[in-house]
Simulated assay, not measured.
Amino acid sequence: MTRPFIRRYRPSDRPAVAEICIRTAHEGGDASGLYPDPELLPVIFAYPYVELEPDFAFVLDDGTGQAVGYVLGAPDTAGFAARFRREWLPRVTPRFPPPAGAADTPADGMATLLHTPERMVHGQLSGHPAHLHIDLLPSWQGQGYGRSLIHTLLAALHDHGVPAVHLCMVQANTSARAFYDRLGFTQLNVPDPGPVWYLGRPTTG
């Protein structure tokens, strides 16, 4: 066994990435059991990134080849949303169709998010064209690995010519907000954001 290290995502990491996504998706906590089909969350928040933007997908390897955390990014949010609709939705809609009526259940709410990728695009965020998702299993949090993952992605985005990045997080996850504040993210003004914050920072500095 070697020390934990950050590396690029590999297709063999897909099950681990799904588990990480599910175990951290409910306000930073475990979402297991909240949705009838456990694949719904990774289909929205993880798989499209590793499929459509593999150059901006990194994992924390525990030293044995097992991914225990990840950071996933898209350098051009508007372009990513367009590709999501054009390339990703046709692949997953047979298993996850849009809700037939009002989104009355958590699964329906998530399915609505899946089928509205344009929700990711806000004119107020045009100065922060990239966006990211980061998650680590609970036992790997609070040890500096999240910071290292963020800086790995920032460097990749900077090398790609991207000036700034943003993220969207639920306001109830106060520990995550403190983490982002320490990393230099600041709140971005998006009208009527609902129960979320939009945060951003340059890819350098």
Rank of each mutant, 00 (worst) to 15 (best):
D37E: 12
G69R: 04
V17Q: 03
T64A: 10
G63Y: 10
P36C: 14
D30W: 00
E39F: 01
L34E: 14
A18V: 00
A46S: 15
V43E: 12
I44C: 03
P38R: 07
F56C: 03
I22Y: 04
C21Y: 02
F45Q: 13
P42C: 06
A25K: 07
V50W: 15
L60I: 01
V59L: 13
P36G: 09
D37M: 04
D55Q: 15
D61G: 10
D37R: 05
V17E: 06
G73C: 12
T24I: 12
V71S: 01
L34K: 11
L52I: 04
A31L: 07
E51H: 09
G65S: 10
P38E: 06
L40T: 01
R14S: 09
G28F: 01
L60C: 01
T64K: 03
D37Y: 03
F58G: 06
G28M: 05
P15L: 09
Y35F: 15
S32P: 01
D37S: 09
C21E: 05
I20F: 04
D13R: 01
G63S: 00
D55N: 12
P15R: 12
L34M: 14
L34Q: 14
L34T: 01
A57S: 06
Q66C: 12
F56A: 11
S32Y: 00
V71T: 02
G33Q: 08
G29R: 15
L41N: 04
L34D: 15
P15N: 01
P48M: 08
G28R: 08
V59S: 02
C21S: 13
G29D: 07
L60E: 05
L41V: 15
P38W: 04
S32A: 11
G73K: 04
V71A: 13
D55E: 14
V68E: 04
R14N: 11
P36E: 09
E51K: 12
P15K: 13
S32D: 00
E51T: 08
A57P: 07
Y47M: 11
G28D: 01
E39Q: 10
V68Q: 14
D55C: 13
E39T: 01
A57E: 03
E51W: 08
G63R: 07
Y35G: 11
E19A: 15
I20W: 10
T64M: 06
Y49W: 12
L41Q: 11
I20K: 01
P48C: 11
G69L: 07
I20Y: 08
Y49H: 02
G69P: 00
I44T: 00
V43L: 12
A46W: 05
E19W: 09
Y70Q: 14
E27I: 02
C21V: 02
P54H: 02
P48R: 12
I22C: 09
T24V: 13
I20C: 07
G33D: 01
F45G: 03
E39D: 14
S12L: 14
D13C: 06
Q66E: 14
I44Q: 00
V59D: 02
P38G: 05
Y35I: 14
E19V: 11
E53L: 04
V68W: 02
F58E: 07
G73Y: 10
R23A: 10
T64V: 08
Y47G: 05
A31P: 09
G63P: 02
A16C: 09
D37N: 14
L40M: 08
I44M: 08
I22N: 07
A18Q: 05
L52D: 13
P36M: 06
S12K: 10
L34H: 15
